[in-house]
Amino acid sequence: MNYHWNWRIFWEPAPNGTGNYLDMLLSGLVLTIETAICAWIIALAFGAVVGVMRTLPSKTASSVGFAYVEFFRNMPLLVQLFIWFFVLPELLPHGSGLWLKQIPNAPFYTAAIGIGLFMSARVAEQTRAGINSLPRGQKLAATALGLTTAQAYRYVLLPMAFRIIMPPLTSEFLSTIKNTSVAITIGLIELTGEARAMQEFSFQVFEAFTGATVLYLLINVVVVIAMRFLERALAVPGYIGGK
């Protein structure tokens, strides 16, 4: 392979004046994590609500939930980000559109919200599956105890459902982290973006992408280990994984 390797490139100063190329990648890593966490909070909140809606007896609630999930699931994430970033501000009245476009860090907020909503459809599906997997007796018993529907969800169904769907939620969280890289198309310089910038400035293509690859693997390992602890701590006795 006639490619000139230079692994010391990571310790050479980067043109942005704040340190070397490794610092550049690490700052991208931080932004990746920040974006992923914000997006995940949105995904969990919206996903839980929509997931619950789909299991409610009300026909309207469940069809609204269904439409929501289909809407966010049937468009590529990249296209959704373009809609939020390039299209939405132009459709608003001039003043508010302008305000939206000139928020500092607009790519960050757009990415967090756009990825959050995209992932919320998937969280909703997991939540629904979790609630539906509970024996019908649980809901019936809660009702028999005099709990309202809201109370039954709050105290009985959701605490159970969320503990059951912890493993699939872990992989959805990992997807959220990976999906932040799509935001380089709207100017967010997260880890993949920094690797691309490093490649452009230093011409060391494969070193830059290797650096990013190693960092992504690292986040994955950390998240998987952390979630395994959490899963064990929250496992329901009597269920798989419980004591």
């Binding site: 392979m1 990992l174 990976k178 890289s181 993949t192 494969f206 992408f209 990013a212 693997l217």
Partner: peptide, 25 residues
């Protein structure tokens, strides 16, 4: 595990630049 840990965007960059070298090899 490796493929599932990486974002597709990064993999797309990797392969676009790497495939000709793999072909050479």
């Amino acid at each position: 595990d490796l493929m599932r840990s990486l974002p597709l965007v990064l993999v797309i960059f990797w392969f676009y630049f790497l495939v000709p070298y793999i072909g050479q090899w």
